[in-house]
Design a protein around this nucleic acid. Structure first.
Lengths: 298, 298
DNA sequence: CAACTGTTTTTTATTTATAAAATTCACTCA
DNA sequence: TGAGTGAATTTTATAAATAAAAAACAGTTG
């Protein structure tokens, strides 16, 4: 069998939707090229879609003029509901779920074929995902042998946090050197207020913390971008997200504490108290590290 | 067509070589299992190899006892000379050579198929290599579209050096906190002498510097290992190696300067002069950064 | 000549097939 | 019981095939 023409079908639907909202019968449609760029596909696909519309008697081509003959009806659309997600996504979701449900534990071995079957994809898709995923440093593979979950030991956490410490301290120091009139101070202030608000309704909305956490780090990154630091932060986020799933029982307390620590850090930052902010961040990182060790290490 | 039995053929040759050096006619050979572990292949392959030796009348199996009938001769060996290297390696070498020869420049696009043909491998091998390689941050790809060399601009160098600065300063500081009697001080001293020696014959042996450079960083890493920092150093090394190829004219001066700077740093370290070592390292990193910018940016 | 179209060529994504090699299973014998 | 064997099963590595989609090419027209 060969690949499905999802790009084509999706384009037809998008086109119909677009026509329904912006055109009326008798209008001329834009050129192939502009449609292609507008919907981010190649011209080949656009042409195939237009041909399809012609065969539905919705469009007529005359001398390279595309005339809209009639408005599209519901039955003209492709049923796109059973297009499965991109393979890549399927594999990822399945693999992550295996990890989070504890079916794959540190030290375990697993095969590509097995994953491919379970996630209803091909070994190629699986393998490519695993290669990409291996940058997180959680899996490894020897040639002609299966993949293996690396041991998630204390040394790993220590090394992760060593780097995180370096990076976050660096980001903090950079932020504090921003000029007084930088817009980022405004943003930081807004974030401070958001934290305050969340802290008041923590007992119900504690699941909202990760969003703020992400926003905070995003702000520091935006103020002084660095692709390498940013990439590393992905790893941190993943490892966190990944292991905290194992023990959701203490999530509320953890988040409550973290919010307070964030408020402390941001408060010191807003007061330009470099030393205080550093100490507060130090404390925050340390809490996080201990908490990770407690829940994650077997 | 399907895959070649290289593992098998190589095992046969290794086995013959081993027998030639360690056994004599009439000896019993070790069990399948021990051979398999010794030569790091599966038992299946061992059995196939032994069967092959039987068919050559070199070995006879009786009741699971493997007896050596005769010593192997030259003609028993497989001709392994035309086994091409592993696909992975082929792709890598080809791709790197494209980059180093300047045929692939920042901003260029290239296709998987093209690379596969040129390097005499498959698109799968190419794609897997490219995915792995993309962690260096030098290439990128959109779905359904070709790969593209990222722009190697000043921001990239700055970001690279920002992280390098953080890491190297951190490593230095850790090293200086080693106890007086740590063996690493001895190693550092030996390295100091090596540097001194090289500096005397720099005009002829300047190409030997990268080895020392690598050794220096290796020593710092060994004293305080961190997989994330280590991995990042791979990126640094590669980017360096990669871009310096573009301008070999000044290599001698660059290396001569770098050796002096290393001597300076190590000297200060051995004297436990923290402040001096930091300054010296700072200077070294700065030289390297400027030099990279000068040769690499278009 | 620049934007467009029709046509042709390449390239990517995905599936299938197959031998090599690894792994598992069931059994044997010291 | 535990290391070892023979046979069966699974998995990996690799090639090949094909349709979808992208990109390149060659004209055409305002």
């Amino acid at each position: 069998m060969s690949r499905k023409n999802v790009v084509f079908q999706k384009l037809v639907n998008t086109l119909l939707e677009h026509v329904k909202n912006h055109c009326k019968t008798g209008d001329y449609l834009p050129s192939d090229v502009s449609l292609a760029t507008q919907f981010n596909v190649s011209r080949t696909t656009v042409r195939k879609a237009i041909e399809h519309l012609e065969s539905l008697d919705l469009v007529r081509k005359m001398d390279a003029q595309k005339t809209l003959l009639a408005m599209p009806e519901a039955h003209h659309f492709f049923d796109v509901s059973q297009h499965s997600k991109p393979k890549e996504k399927l594999v990822e979701e399945h693999f992550i779920s295996l990890i989070q449900s504890g079916k794959l534990k540190p030290g375990d071995k697993f095969s590509e074929l097995e994953l491919a079957r379970q996630s209803d994809t091909s070994t190629v898709a699986v393998r490519e995902f695993l290669i990409r995923f291996s940058r997180f440093g959680l899996i490894e593979k020897n040639p002609r042998s299966q993949w293996k979950m690396k041991n998630f030991d204390e040394a790993f956490v220590d090394q992760l946090y060593e780097v995180r410490h370096l990076f976050e301290m660096h980001s903090l120091s950079n932020f504090l050197q921003l000029p007084e009139d930088s817009d980022y101070w405004q943003e930081l202030n807004a974030l401070f207020i958001e934290h305050k608000q969340l802290s008041l309704k923590m007992d119900t909305d504690y699941e909202d913390f990760p969003r703020l956490d992400h926003k905070f780090h995003g702000l520091l990154q935006k103020a002084h971008p660095n692709q390498f630091i940013n990439e590393f932060y992905d790893i941190i986020s993943f490892v966190f997200h990944y292991h905290y799933q194992w023990d959701r029982s203490t999530e509320r307390e953890r988040n409550a504490l973290a919010v307070q620590e964030h408020i402390n850090i941001i408060g010191k930052m807003l007061m330009k108290d470099y030393h205080g902010a550093t100490l507060a961040l130090e404390k925050h990182l340390n809490t996080a590290k201990q908490s990770l060790k407690k829940t994650a290490i077997l």
